[in-house]
Design a binder for these strands. Structure first.
Length: 475
RNA sequence: CGGGGAGUGGCGCAGCGGUAGCGCACCUGCUUUGGGAGCAGGAGGUCGCGGGUUCGAAUCCCGCCUCCCCGACCA
């Protein structure tokens, strides 16, 4: 039987687009670069949102909402920030049929508006830390859009915080990196991301430090999946965020900002998808178990209904597919395309022996299970499917990671994977050379993969020695 | 913005001077249903836009627009 998708090995980008179309995740919008997120894709996003939102709140941040429109002049208050974002701004010049006195930009990110309010709200060291998060859409006029990975409008969360000291700000940026992003990506998305800090070249516009999570996709390329920035006092000075400390002296606050977006769905597709479609980690699957009625038969239907009820009572997200006017093969293929982790097939042949068939999406295994044992088998399958997706992604990353000892060996090693090389051998000039051949330094980290404690912002001291650079092609 | 390519039913394509067709999808009916069912019937298109050549243009000519792929930017 012909595959419903272009095989990954034939044309990975084409495969990616095919999966999005066939799994009904998204469509291109009418305006270039915009995206319609379809119900199946949005349900995945809602689960991801819920998992992140809980962790964000555990980290002490509160949700709020700020306006979509920002006065253009706000962007200009922070020099690097405006320089970084100007090329991709959408600017509104007319409203209500008249030209506006001051154009407004559609937010590309909200540091400027949010900080202008934080400036109002912070007076004393007792107001700190101030921790807000917002779930919103943002617009960046991208030159080369790709669904989920780089769309002109995307959904994300952006956190913005103010702290009394640099150490507090750094600790919080790292707390978000570890307890929100790393945890969500590993435990929920089942993607074994690398964490580290960005080089000055790759840093967020206006930040003194950018911490990142980098995932490896199925073709060996890297994807930046979430970032947590230390903003130093850049925005505090630009927006006048000052407070009286314990001694009564005026101080500028130290800040962070951090964001992760619908791009993670692109990562999910590319990290776990196979030639049959999406493979969803159970933690994210809108439907964990599909109960498929093979034939229109009274006993079969009754058994299927009972199973659905039992599995739901066990706390699983279950859907019944009793569309017996559609052929079995068609329905099986459709649910595989959508990536539902476990399929329970209920048909007269198995049922005559008191069995149903359990099929796992992640590894394709199929087995007959007695009715009485279905609930516990399904529960076990969901747990191991979650774990196995993570471990196979990890194995794949390790197989495609090469440690090299000279910068000359980097391009070959990064051809279809990650090259790891001492940062001392690369440096800013080596980084520029690599960039010319389509490679970038994804992050810097210690040789054991841990974070550098003194990541050396531009203005402070010498970089920690012995760091390694992870180099790859990137999305 | 530089280099390539393409615009024809929902999607993918053929047709390249004589008035539009194929596959998939869709609708109806019957037979099917344990890995994308079969047969029969049916609906759907100002051939990207504007102008020109011609008895006649999807097809040839001129202009414009849009989209896709490869580079510089990016969650």
């Amino acid at each position: 039987m012909a595959s419903p998708l272009t095989p990954r090995a034939t044309d990975f980008p084409r495969w990616y687009q095919d999966v999005i179309a066939r799994a009904e995740l998204a469509d291109n919008g009418p305006v270039r670069g915009t995206m319609v997120i379809r119900p199946w894709g949005y349900a995945i996003w809602e689960r991801l949102q819920a998992e992140m939102d809980r962790r964000i709140k555990d980290a002490g941040a509160e949700n709020a909402y700020f306006p979509l429109f920002i006065p253009q002049s706000y962007l200009q208050r922070e020099a690097e920030h405006v320089e970084g974002f100007s090329p991709e701004l959408a600017v509104v010049t007319h409203g209500g049929g008249k030209q506006l006195e001051e154009p407004v930009v559609v937010r590309p990110t909200s540091e400027t508006v949010i900080n202008s309010f934080i400036a109002k709200w912070v007076q004393s060291y007792r107001d700190l830390p101030l921790l807000v998060n917002q779930w919103a859409n943002v617009v960046r006029w991208e030159l080369r859009p790709r669904l989920f990975l780089r769309t002109s409008e995307f959904l994300w969360q952006e956190g913005h915080t103010a702290h009394a000291t640099e150490a507090d700000a750094r600790a919080y940026a790292l707390q978000i990196l570890n307890d929100v992003y790393l945890q969500t990506m590993v435990d929920v998305l089942a993607i074994p991301v690398l964490i580290g800090h960005k080089t000055a070249r790759e840093r967020f516009a206006g930040a003194t430090q950018t911490w990142t999570c980098e995932g490896m996709m199925g073709d060996g390329k890297a994807l930046q999946m979430g970032t947590s920035h230390e903003l130093g006092q850049n925005f505090a000075k630009a927006f006048g965020i000052q407070f009286s400390d314990e001694t009564g002296a005026q101080q500028y606050a130290w800040q962070t900002s951090w964001g992760a977006s619908t791009r993670m769905i692109g990562a999910l597709i590319m990290a776990h998808g196979d030639d049959r479609g999406l493979r969803l980690p159970p933690a994210l699957a809108p439907v964990e178990v599909i109960v498929l009625v093979i034939r229109d038969d009274e006993a079969v239907r009754a058994a299927a209904d009972a199973l659905v009820a039992e599995l739901r009572a066990g706390g699983h997200r279950v859907r019944l597919d009793a569309r017996t006017d559609v052929s079995f093969g068609r329905r099986a293929v459709d649910w595989e395309l959508k990536g539902v982790p476990v399929r329970v097939e209920v048909g007269p042949r198995d049922l005559a022996e008191g069995n149903v068939t359990l099929v796992r999406r992640d590894n394709g295994t199929k087995r007959a299970v007695p009715l009485a044992g279905v609930a516990s088998e399904v529960a076990a399958d969901l747990v191991s499917a979650q774990a196995d997706l993570l471990s196979s992604a990890l194995a794949q990353r390790e197989a495609r990671t090469t440690v090299v000892a000279s910068i000359e060996d980097v391009p070959a090693a990064a051809e279809d994977g990650f090259a790891v090389v001492p940062w001392e051998l690369v440096g800013a000039s080596g980084e520029a050379t690599l960039a010319a051949s389509g490679l970038s330094v994804r992050c810097l980290q210690r040789p054991d993969g841990s974070l550098a404690t003194d990541a050396a912002p531009d203005d402070g001291g010498t970089p920690e020695p012995g760091l390694r650079a992870v180099v790859a092609k990137a999305y």
